[in-house]
Design a protein around this nucleic acid. Sequence first.
DNA 1: CTAGTTTCCTACCAATCGTTAGATAAGTGA
DNA 2: TCACTTATCTAACGATTGGTAGGAAACTAG
Lengths: 200, 200
Amino acid sequence: MAMGRPREFDVDKALDLALQVFWRKGYEGASMADLTETMGITKPSLYSAFGNKEELFRKALDRYVDGPGGYFQVALAKPTARAVVEHLLYESAAAVTDPNHPPGCLAVQGALSCGDAAESIKQELMSRRAKGEQDLRQRFERAIAEGDLPEGSDAADLAAYVSAILQGMAVQAAGGTTREQLRRIAEMALRTWPPGLASV
Amino acid sequence: MAMGRPREFDVDKALDLALQVFWRKGYEGASMADLTETMGITKPSLYSAFGNKEELFRKALDRYVDGPGGYFQVALAKPTARAVVEHLLYESAAAVTDPNHPPGCLAVQGALSCGDAAESIKQELMSRRAKGEQDLRQRFERAIAEGDLPEGSDAADLAAYVSAILQGMAVQAAGGTTREQLRRIAEMALRTWPPGLASV
DNA sequence: CTAGTTTCCTACCAATCGTTAGATAAGTGA
DNA sequence: TCACTTATCTAACGATTGGTAGGAAACTAG
């Protein structure tokens, strides 16, 4: 059977470029003109290859999670809860200030608040963040079971606490904070890890 | 001299309604149609009373800082560094989950990332966040001078740390986290406050 | 009552939004 | 070479964006 005209651009390269645009401008702030211009392709090519703007964002998001955001899954595989948190905090500080990428975290600033048209993207990012926090909670549950965290620790609370610090660091990075400053924040959080049990 | 036709709507009420829209949808996500509809006025009335979209946002932001975000300045006036941080964390947990308002914090989610047209608003929010962190730093410097915080503490680092936790809580709230969960995050942060000196 | 001032609303502006029709070009299999 | 398939492009689509003209309406000062 016929194979048709071959594509003249690299889909993965184009997706990486789209990711940069979404990362820097957010889902709403990135226009199709922005995207096609930096991707180096025309709009029909984009639609043919990626569906529409929303599908393009979702594919870019997948690529983000497996690429620049991959440190999260790596951290979960560390042998101790402390090593997990250390890796999370330091690698996050590095990732959100990587000069090769826009500052901040796509999962946080991609669509933190938005108009009606982007609502489903906002939901997607919310559930991704929630998923990350849940994965962390399960990792802490395991740590508690292994005696790696104090008995009586609340894995869900610890996961929410670490997630909040990570997301806060992402906001700081979006505001121009330096990598060194974020590392000091990470140090301070680690200095008191784990934050001890509630005195109920 | 002649006084002209009196305005038929309450400017402050309209501004409060605009604030709700910006808070929920962000600067970019809030369209003029959204704004005029919920404000209950027509576009020419809005432009006549507030200038343009950008000025309207800035005025709504001022109103936010003096209203729902007023807990920040209140916290800075507390007598001890610990009281400052306690007030900040607990009042922030309450504010970003107040059922009478959209979830989260306008200064964080108003324009965390955006297109070119909203760049100046993004900058404005960045500098407001930086200003808040700086105010907190100065408050901690005073606390150090008063012996209220351990000698050798780094006020700037402590301010960045607390700011990150507050901003992280705002992101969590935007993601639907409950007030109770945020209070537990605040508790954990307070349990280890101040985070101790670096062991350099 | 009139002149002057200001707000009101309808209708519209140009520009941009995301998206697509339709024609042409470039490849494969027979 | 010919039919088939797929990618390419120009040019446009209707809808929505932020923002305004221009006139009627409502007030005050004289």
